[in-house]
């Protein structure tokens, strides 16, 4: 075979390999720079994550003008925690309930995870839960071993009710039965129509109910209130070095400024963000 021919072909082959390598590297760096907001919140009512994901990704695309930014929800706490520990997730952003963050802070592996924003409802980063019954229940003592309707995490609801009970003179281990319902309004209706004797709902939900149905609201009695609970927080590992991480955080912060962003926040249960302050950190009991 002609030597020139072989030489020419090996030269072309080498060039092809270099171009291919460049392409692969480009693709790899593109992948590397892709950023995701990972979400876990059992308090959130929405259970059709496919549609929220689509809505969120569409928002991120319009806010960043790039397809590299994504939203990924989780349904299971344990899988979410395992995922958080992975070293390659160190440049990603996470959105989780404040109580779960407090729980994570007890583990060394998560110490560098710092809160950036906290969700707000009408500019308030905290909310309280109230225990309500019908008017005929005069004290919490009458609720011992009775059924309380509550949306959200069952154990967390139990602890909150026990905390309210302790403030009302009950032993902190007093037993209540929990009926888990999808949302606060279901818990409210359960009390009104006798499916449960009490309901643990957010103060905000009770206020909305009092505005919309004054007559039914007058049938209810508030037995007690929880401590202020911080709304979900956006956290990231410190220090934040990657530009793409900062860009994702900016897009999240800008959500209340667009109608699509507002819609997503509404679906998740709040309507704005604020930067975490030292006072918020105090409330989270994080030094």
């Amino acid at each position: 075979m002609d030597e020139n021919f072989i030489h020419r072909h090996s030269f072309i082959g080498r060039r092809a390999i270099i171009i291919l390598t460049c392409l692969v590297l480009m693709l790899f760096s593109w992948q590397l720079e892709a950023r995701t907001l990972y979400f876990y919140n059992p308090e959130s009512n929405i259970n059709d994550f496919r549609s929220v994901k689509r809505l969120f990704n569409r928002y991120l695309l319009s806010a960043t003008k790039s397809r590299r930014y994504r939203f990924q929800p989780f349904k299971n706490a344990k899988i979410f925690e395992r995922f958080l520990k992975k070293p390659r997730k160190r440049n990603e952003v996470f959105l989780l309930p404040s109580w779960q963050y407090q729980k994570l802070m007890k583990q060394k592996a998560f110490r560098k995870l710092k809160p950036i924003f906290v969700a707000t409802i009408n500019n308030n980063p905290t909310y309280t839960k109230v225990l309500i019954t019908k008017k005929n229940i005069r004290s919490m003592k009458q609720l011992r071993r009775k059924r309380i309707a509550s949306a959200g995490d069952r154990n967390y609801s139990k602890k909150t009710i026990q905390f309210i009970g302790a403030k009302n003179g009950l032993h902190y281990r007093t037993q209540f039965r929990i009926l888990t319902v999808p949302k606060d309004v279901d818990a409210l209706m359960s009390v009104l129509f006798g499916m449960a004797q009490g309901a643990l709902i957010s103060h905000i939900s009770l206020n909305s109910f009092s505005r919309i149905n004054k007559r039914k609201y007058r049938l209810l009695r508030q037995q007690g209130e929880s401590q202020a609970i911080m709304l979900p927080i956006v956290v990231a590992y410190q220090p934040i070095k990657k530009k793409s991480t900062k860009r994702l955080l900016s897009a999240i912060q800008a959500m209340p400024d667009s109608s699509r962003g507002k819609e997503i926040l509404g679906l998740l249960g709040w309507n704005g963000w604020k930067k975490v302050t030292p006072r918020d950190l105090q409330l989270l009991e994080v030094k």
Binding site: S51, P182, E263, L267
Partner: peptide, 13 residues
């Protein structure tokens, strides 16, 4: 009412 959207379980787009 955006605040009421948290009462929705599923959305169709």
């Amino acid at each position: 009412n955006h605040a009421a959207l948290s009462s929705v379980e599923e959305i169709i787009q």
